[in-house]
């Protein structure tokens, strides 16, 4: 009886430990598509004392960035820089964004002066 329980528990454990990372990626491979009419660069994750640049590429309107892999799976505060009409770099705060892990395409657009984002 006890051996049976031990076998069951170990089976359940090994099933869980072996399988979940096949379903849930532990890193995020992110690519940005710029659907606005302004250049975008330095998409970053903001910390309290420190900011990590995730996508350093400058993405022209309608263009795609390279794919950059980072250990960000969860919910994170994202900002990026954009070139405004006066030719100065301006910081845009996108708030908290959920990343589920794996390969994701983040489409950034500007509608009626408001920045918006969407995953594909």
């Amino acid at each position: 009886m006890k051996k049976w329980i031990l076998a069951l528990v170990s089976t359940v454990f090994f099933m869980l430990s072996a399988c979940t990372h096949l379903v849930l990626d532990s890193t995020e491979r992110l690519q940005v598509k710029n659907l606005s009419d302004q250049d975008i660069t330095d998409l970053s994750v903001v910390g309290k004392s420190d900011t990590i640049v995730w996508i350093p590429d400058t993405v022209a309107p309608g263009e795609l960035s390279f794919v950059h892999e980072q250990d960000f799976v969860g919910s994170f505060h994202i900002i990026f820089k954009t070139l405004d009409s006066t030719g100065a770099w301006e910081i845009v705060d996108m708030g908290k964004i959920d990343f589920d892990g794996g390969s994701e395409l983040l489409k950034i657009s500007k509608k009626d002066g408001e920045w918006d984002h969407e995953f594909e």
Binding site: L16, T20, L24, S26, V45, V46, G47, K48, S49, D50, I52, D71, F72, V73, G74, S75, F76, H77, K96, G101
Partner: peptide
Amino acid sequence: PLPSQSQLSTEYGKHEG
């Protein structure tokens, strides 16, 4: 067993793990 239950809060946000 559930990564959503063991989220780590760091200065950057909430990490699943």
